[in-house]
Amino acid sequence: MDLATCTYQEFQPSMGAPIRTTAGHPRFPLGYELGGHARLITPTRDLLVQNLPEDAYEFSYRRLLNGQGINRISTELAGLAARNSGARLVLLCFDRYDQLRPGDAWCHRGMFAKWWFEQTGEEVPELGAQKPTPPPVLF
C-alpha cells in the first residue's frame, strides 16, 4: 500500500489522496476535499487531552494501534485507497515538524509511520517540512 504523511496546511493534491487522521476536522478552509478519515489510526480524544510527554504518548498510541490490529488497519486503509482510485494515501494532521519547539518535534503521524514499518516493512515518508536538524557540535 502506498502511504505518506503530511500536514493539512502543506498538502498538495499532486501528493495523493488526503486522508484525515485527526480527532477533529480542520478549523480552517482547505483548498481540497478530503478523501476520507482513517478512524482506526486516529488518536482518541482521551489520549489527546492527557498532554503526555512523547514516550508516554507513543506507548499509549501504540497500544491503541496494536488493539486495532494490523489486519483491521490495513483493511480500512485499503478501502480508503479503493475509494480514491488507488491513489497514494496521504495521512494528514496539524503539526508541522519545522514549527514545533526543539525537543517536541513529534506527532502521531510519525509514530504511526514507525509502527507501520515495523508491522509491514513498508516505509511511510513525510511529505511536509522535516524535523529541524540540530546544529553540529563543535569541539
Rank of each mutant, 00 (worst) to 15 (best):
residue 56 A to I: 09
residue 112 F to A: 03
residue 3 L to M: 09
residue 42 T to L: 00
residue 40 L to V: 05
residue 80 L to A: 05
residue 34 L to M: 11
residue 14 S to L: 13
residue 21 T to V: 05
residue 115 W to N: 02
residue 35 G to A: 05
residue 23 A to I: 12
residue 86 G to K: 15
residue 82 A to W: 07
residue 78 A to H: 14
residue 94 F to P: 00
residue 99 Q to D: 10
residue 76 E to P: 01
residue 66 N to K: 08
residue 103 G to R: 07
residue 42 T to D: 00
residue 127 L to F: 13
residue 125 P to N: 06
residue 23 A to R: 12
residue 84 N to M: 11
residue 92 L to H: 12
residue 45 R to S: 07
residue 21 T to L: 03
residue 41 I to R: 01
residue 69 G to H: 02
residue 36 G to T: 13
residue 137 V to M: 14
residue 45 R to E: 14
residue 115 W to V: 02
residue 130 Q to N: 13
residue 84 N to V: 12
residue 32 Y to V: 07
residue 35 G to H: 07
residue 30 L to C: 06
residue 130 Q to I: 13
residue 4 A to S: 11
residue 114 K to G: 00
residue 35 G to S: 05
residue 96 R to N: 04
residue 80 L to Q: 00
residue 81 A to Q: 10
residue 124 V to A: 01
residue 123 E to H: 05
residue 3 L to I: 02
residue 53 P to Q: 15
residue 43 P to K: 10
residue 61 Y to E: 04
residue 131 K to H: 02
residue 20 R to M: 00
residue 108 H to S: 06
residue 90 V to H: 02
residue 44 T to Q: 04
residue 134 P to G: 14
residue 114 K to N: 05
residue 21 T to M: 04
residue 67 G to I: 13
residue 90 V to E: 02
residue 27 R to G: 13
residue 5 T to K: 02
residue 108 H to W: 00
residue 65 L to Y: 09
residue 31 G to R: 14
residue 109 R to I: 00
residue 30 L to S: 01
residue 33 E to G: 03
residue 109 R to L: 08
residue 68 Q to W: 04
residue 99 Q to S: 09
residue 39 R to E: 04
residue 15 M to R: 04
residue 63 R to P: 09
residue 97 Y to H: 14
residue 47 L to K: 03
residue 76 E to D: 12
residue 62 R to A: 04
residue 109 R to D: 01
residue 14 S to W: 11
residue 15 M to D: 04
residue 98 D to M: 11
residue 22 T to V: 08
residue 28 F to H: 11
residue 60 S to T: 15
residue 70 I to C: 10
residue 69 G to A: 04
residue 41 I to H: 02
residue 127 L to I: 07
residue 77 L to A: 03
residue 55 D to W: 11
residue 88 R to P: 06
residue 48 L to R: 03
residue 96 R to K: 15
residue 89 L to H: 01
residue 41 I to P: 00
residue 71 N to C: 10
residue 56 A to N: 08
residue 124 V to Y: 02
residue 81 A to M: 11
residue 81 A to E: 05
residue 137 V to G: 07
residue 4 A to E: 08
residue 32 Y to H: 13
residue 99 Q to A: 10
residue 26 P to K: 01
residue 41 I to W: 06
residue 106 W to T: 03
residue 54 E to A: 08
residue 35 G to D: 01
residue 13 P to A: 03
residue 115 W to M: 05
residue 63 R to F: 14
residue 18 P to S: 11
residue 131 K to L: 11
residue 50 Q to Y: 15
residue 36 G to D: 02
residue 65 L to S: 04
residue 68 Q to G: 01
residue 74 S to H: 05
residue 88 R to C: 13
residue 42 T to V: 08
residue 58 E to H: 13
residue 97 Y to D: 12
residue 69 G to M: 04
residue 123 E to R: 11
residue 137 V to H: 11
residue 77 L to I: 15
residue 98 D to L: 11
residue 23 A to K: 07
residue 108 H to A: 08
residue 134 P to Y: 10
residue 79 G to M: 09
residue 34 L to A: 09
residue 62 R to I: 00
residue 117 F to V: 08
residue 60 S to H: 15
residue 85 S to G: 10
residue 59 F to V: 12
residue 129 A to Y: 00
residue 39 R to Q: 06
residue 18 P to F: 10
